[in-house]
Amino acid sequence: MATEHPPDTVVRFDGVSKQFDSEVLALDDVSLSVRAGEMVVLLGLSGSGKSTLLRHVDGLQRATSGTVTVLGTDVGRARGAGLRRLRHRIGFVFQQFHLVGSLTVLENVCTGALGRLRGPRLGLLSYPRTVRHEALRHLDRVGLLSQAFQRADTLSGGQQQRVAVARALMQRPQILLADEPVASLDPESSAQIMRLIKEIGEEEGLTVLCSLHQVDLALSWGHRIIGLRAGRVLMDSPVSALTRDDVMSVYARLGVATPAVLTAKAG
């Protein structure tokens, strides 16, 4: 595994393992580094550790051993306000959108600004006008300006995910994490969301870590693919060096011979 890290590394895992209360080892000695502006796709079977890996990046889960360094901060040691400041620089898009269905679309986007606002907020009026304007701009960008005052639960799945992207943008993030952002969507909405994330990522110079299930989408979308199996990094390679069959082998059953390309190193 990579031991030297280029100076523009924004995410670094050093020998990270995560053990849940049972004997399940969700991450098993994972080491990797991601450079600023990279778009990385995580591939792997369900339960291979993709979500766990993403959740370690912004400290929603903590490593059992090893260190996770993000934007120069040791995530495992960050607590309280420090951790919240770090999280505010990292956008997170979830598979299940996680919007408050009974609130308006606009208020859901505004909640992305909570990390830089003081105190609790209840109701749109409690957000400063400038925040609301900024939220409207982000909604415009994801193409949902006209739905700003609808309840979030009246939108389709694809629209809700775009709202979630707008909420993440509201954080003015440096890193965007996406945990199977299109797994609950139809192919057309999926393509739309992935295009949106890519466009925004390139325009804003974001570092994007995105877990996916669709091999073809991964090949056409990312710069680099990391394949996980049973919590271990099985493959870490630039997309240009991979064929579809190489990638499919991540999904192959255990015991199948490992192709040589899987040992290729990234960058």
Binding site: D58, R85, R87, R89, G115
Partner: peptide, 14 residues
């Protein structure tokens, strides 16, 4: 939803 907001850096009360 709570996890999503914690992930934005929101505090407990927020």
């Amino acid at each position: 939803v709570e996890a999503a907001l914690r992930a934005t850096g929101a505090g407990r009360w927020q």
